[in-house]
Design a protein around this nucleic acid. Structure first.
Lengths: 155, 155
DNA sequence: GCAACATAGTTTTATGATGCAACCACTGGA
DNA sequence: TCCAGTGGTTGCATCATAAAACTATGTTGC
């Protein structure tokens, strides 16, 4: 298989995520979908991508259960692409990507948008990783453990 | 340029992140680097990827300031690849990918590792997005705002 | 009810990226 | 010195990607 080395069977959850949304366009499509875009043409004109690529990506996202097709909604007989629960669940990933860019980008002045709390209009905090008991954790405070039950594997 | 439509100049920080780490292997390399891998051969055998691809990716990550080459460390005259501050800053992204997979994967039983708090050995909480005043936020509680003006940046 | 246009794709074709294998340079040890 | 291991680079086949043309419906104007 010369292909894109699918990590579908890999034990690492990061690889598994990337298998579904690890390509260039998928996350951008999801980003637009979170903002309410639904129609093929909307995605196409907003993202400026080729229609064939968009078609392939949309189908892939539907196959992965991230988007689903809805028969209609605005009266017309066309179909729409809406996020599933799984699709909406990618929100923290997008936030993490955004915050990483905000913090480390070489040209942060080119970033023109801020993610804000809708109620107060103020910027959100950085994503927080906390322990069971509420302590804030950094990468150094964490480690990987094998899951108790099944087989073992080094990863 | 028929190329991979670089979003280097794009205003969206998500696109900008993807421009640096949006490809298949980069995040996996970073994942291993976070676990302490440093040597070319370690990455190559651990990830099972072709050496030429690894070489290209490592160079790209170095160019993006995510990795840097260190002259040596264990006595041998070879070089090593270590994460920069920017590289370590991707940790929340990896956690978000991991947690998304844990929550929505079709075959979660195949995931063999758990991210735990090093001190107590207990699983970490889900990443939390909070408002300025500490309220927990979901996607629906947030919105995007245009940045007023290029003011000074803290951090 | 038919022509013109918009929507949502598929097909075609060209080129860039990926992956495997082979090759090469350098290091360190016997 | 020879030889194995490390750290790559080069060639070549294959695959994915992208732009543009084409198609098949749905919709609108008259």
């Amino acid at each position: 298989m010369v292909k894109r080395t699918s990590f579908e069977g890999d034990a690492c959850p990061i690889a598994r995520s990337l298998d579904a949304i690890g390509d260039w366009w998928s996350l951008l499509i999801i980003r637009e979908a979170l903002f309410g875009l639904r129609r093929f043409g909307e995605f196409q004109s907003k993202l400026g991508m080729a229609k064939n690529i968009l078609a392939v990506r949309l189908r892939s996202l539907v196959d992965h259960g991230i988007l689903e097709t809805a028969p209609a909604s605005d009266g017309s007989a066309y179909q729409e692409y809406v996020l599933t629960e799984k699709g909406r669940g990618t929100f923290p990933i997008l936030v993490a990507l955004r915050q990483w860019s905000e913090e480390f980008d070489d040209h942060p002045e080119e970033i023109t948008t801020i993610l804000v709390d809708r109620k107060k209009g103020r910027p959100v905090r950085k994503l927080e990783l906390r322990a069971d008991d509420g302590r804030l954790l950094t990468q150094a405070d964490t480690t990987l453990k094998l899951r108790p039950a099944p087989r073992r594997r080094s990863a």
